[in-house]
Amino acid sequence: MSTLKMRYTLTQSQKMMIFVLSMSLYGLSNMFTELIPSIQLGPVELSVEYFAFIPLTLCMLFHPLYAAVGAAVGEIIFGELMLGQFGGLGELEKFITFSLAMYTAGRMVSDPKNRRQVGVAAMIGVAIHQFLSSVVDIVKVWVGVEELEAVKGLAESIVVIEGVGFLNDVLFSGILFALLPTLYLVPRLYGKIEPLLGMKPRERNMKYASGTWLSPKLVIGGILLAAVALGAELVSESGWSIGEFELPWAESNEESMIWLSMLVAAVVAAVVIISLLRRAKRKGQQAGQLDA
């Protein structure tokens, strides 16, 4: 018994509960956001991109991996397949970038009662996702147009469109539908939702040593994997097939390469984003302290 209390361990079924919970809730919300119309202001779309607060909240409260993957699956099933908008392989890139971002955000929170930590993690989670998907979009045009450089102004305009879209999504969707609701929900649900699933709350102040965050090994592995996440479309070039992609449901596979490296990639991507958004970070040194 005493050993059980020491670590945050989950049984196979508890992981599945988290997965199912995250999948159904985020899937449902995705259906709504698909239906809520958007306002088009020129090339920029002012829209409710997604209810990121749902996976963010669940990732912070439970095991981030299962909540993140569950949400990504939920999006594919409810938001795409059911609405008849499934984009096939294109969804794979969403799947990877989204679960990566949510997972990172979840990992960043060690104390769900700490509002500053939760808020920073929520924003970073959205930022990572939006950044990665902007990059993927740019890569798509780059692959799709034969000689990008030959067409004057195309490269610039795609970067501008994606850049504005990125800022819009981070500032509009990020603040309204990630930051605020997450700040409201996480402290409220902490300690309350876990018993309903028959598990103990995540230990408060469960710490990830800062050394782990920045170790060079992780950085290298992360960059490698960031490449995987950035170029799902490019990967398909090499005769990539779905058959080789196995989700590690079995406990034994948990350390299987892809996920381990995704974990690393998440960390690295976070670091990259943090440095990119140094200004946002400079507002307070909270993040640095919190990550410690």
Partner: peptide, 15 residues
């Protein structure tokens, strides 16, 4: 939109 913006950045009808 992509086309319109590329015009703005100095592209032409050929893009």
């Amino acid at each position: 939109w992509l086309f319109l913006l590329s015009l703005f950045f100095g592209g032409g009808i050929e893009s």
